[in-house]
C-alpha cells in the first residue's frame, strides 16, 4: 500500500541568462530560484491497484515516482510504501519495489543482459531455484530467449526494454513504478508491454503506478488515474469519470450509405469528420438520445457507434484550464 500525505519536493535551480557577461556575473553571484516540482500531493494506492499518473511535462509525475522509490528526499510531507519510508532505502523496502524508466537503463552496456540478471540475483539475494523459475516465467511472458546472451549494445530498443523489465522484476517486487515504460517502442511492442504489465499485476497482485505519454497505455491498463499539473493533483479517480467530467461530449460516428448534407450535420453537433467513408459528430451527452433518434429517422446510416472522446483531447482540455479550474472530482482526499 502506498500512502502519500502532503508531499512537497522543491528544488533550487540556478538561473543564468545566455551570454558571456551573464556567465561572468554568475561566477560572482548566483541567482537561485525555487521550483516547486511537487507541491502538496496526497493519495493512497491499495495493493494490486493499477493507477495511471498523468500530467504534462514538468508536472511532477517523475519527481513523485522518484520520491516513492527512495531516490529523492521529500522537502516535506509523509510518504510510506508498503510500510517503509522510501528515502531510508532499507533493504526490505528495495526488495519490494522496482522503478523502470523508459529512458534510463540498468543493463550493463557492454555485457549481455544475462550478466545483469546474475548480478541482480546476487544483490537481491534471490535463491537460485526461485531465480530460475522467475526467469522462466518472464521469458514466457516477454519472450527473451536468446537475447539474454547478446551484448546489450547490440539489442534493439524493444529487445532492450524486454530485458530491462526482466532485470527489474527478477526479485518479484510487489510494487512497480513504471515511468514511460513504452517510450520509443513500436505499436506491437507497446501492446505486448501492456499485456505483460497486466499479466504481472494479476499473477502477483502487484501494485502498478504508471506514467506514460501514450494515452492508450493508460486507457488499456489503468482503471484509476491521478492527474497532476503544476505539482498539484487536479483529479484522482475513475478514468471514465474524468472523461465524463472534463469532456462530457460523446462522439457519434457512422458510415453514410447516401450523401449527407453538411448543414444537417452541423445542426446535430460539432462535425469532427465528414467524408464518404465516415461521419463523426461531437454531441453533448444529454442530447445523445435525441440525436441518434434523429439520425436513424432522417438519414441512411450504417455502423452507428458512440464513443468517448480520445483521452488526448480530454487531457488537452484539462490542462488548458490548468490547476486553477475546478477539478472534476475535486482534489483527492488526503
Amino acid at each position: 500500500m502506498i500512502v502519500v500525505d502532503e508531499l512537497r519536493k522543491h528544488f533550487q535551480v540556478h538561473r543564468r541568462p545566455p551570454g558571456l557577461a551573464a556567465a561572468v556575473r554568475s561566477l560572482l553571484r548566483r541567482r537561485y530560484e525555487t521550483v516547486k516540482a511537487v507541491d502538496g500531493v496526497s493519495f493512497q494506492i491499495e495493493r494490486g491497484e493499477r493507477v495511471g499518473f498523468l500530467g504534462p511535462n514538468g508536472a511532477g509525475k517523475t519527481t513523485t515516482l522518484k520520491v516513492l522509490s527512495g531516490l529523492l528526499h521529500p522537502s516535506s510531507g509523509k510518504v510510506t510504501v508498503n510500510g517503509h519510508v522510501p528515502q531510508r532505502r532499507e533493504p526490505a523496502f528495495l526488495r519490494g519495489i522496482t522503478l523502470v524508466m523508459g529512458q534510463k537503463q540498468q543493463l550493463m552496456w557492454d555485457l549481455p543482459p544475462a550478466e545483469t540478471f546474475a548480478l541482480n540475483r546476487a544483490i537481491f539475494d534471490v535463491p537460485r531455484a526461485r531465480f530460475d523459475a522467475t526467469l522462466r516465467e518472464l521469458d514466457e511472458l516477454l519472450g527473451i530467449g536468446p537475447l539474454a546472451t547478446k551484448p546489450t549494445r547490440q539489442l534493439s530498443l524493444g529487445e532492450r526494454m524486454k530485458c530491462e523489465l526482466t532485470a527489474a522484476l527478477l526479485h518479484q517486487p510487489a510494487t512497480l513504478f513504471l515511468d514511460e515504460p513504452t517510450i520509443g517502442l513500436d505499436v506491437a511492442m507497446q501492446l505486448s508491454m501492456r499485456e505483460f504489465i497486466r499479466a504481472y499485476n494479476q499473477r502477483h497482485e502487484a501494485t502498478v503506478l504508471l506514467t506514460s505519454h501514450y494515452m492508450d497505455d493508460v486507457v488499456a491498463l489503468c482503471p484509476r488515474v491521478i492527474v497532476i499539473d503544476g505539482g498539484r493533483i487536479i483529479h484522482d479517480g475513475d478514468l471514465k469519470a474524468l472523461v465524463k467530467a472534463t469532456h462530457p461530449d460523446k462522439l457519434v460516428s457512422f458510415r453514410p450509405t447516401a450523401p449527407v448534407d453538411g448543414d444537417d450535420l452541423a445542426r446535430l453537433g460539432r462535425v469532427v469528420r465528414h467524408d464518404a467513408a465516415r461521419v463523426v459528430v461531437e454531441v453533448p451527452e444529454d442530447r445523445l438520445r435525441e440525436v441518434i433518434s434523429h439520425l436513424l429517422a432522417t438519414l441512411s446510416v450504417a455502423d452507428l457507434g458512440v464513443e468517448d472522446p480520445p483521452l488526448e483531447d480530454v487531457m488537452r482540455k484539462l490542462f488548458k484550464h490548468g490547476a486553477a479550474a475546478p477539478a472534476p472530482d475535486g482534489p483527492a482526499a488526503p
Binding site: 522518484k66 531516490l71 528495495l94 526488495r95 522503478l99 524508466m101 537503463q105 541482480n120 544483490i123 537481491f124
Partner: peptide, 8 residues
C-alpha cells in the same frame, strides 16, 4: 539512481 535502487 539505478545503483540506489539496489539493496546493497
Amino acid at each position: 539512481s539505478m545503483r540506489l535502487l539496489r539493496p546493497i
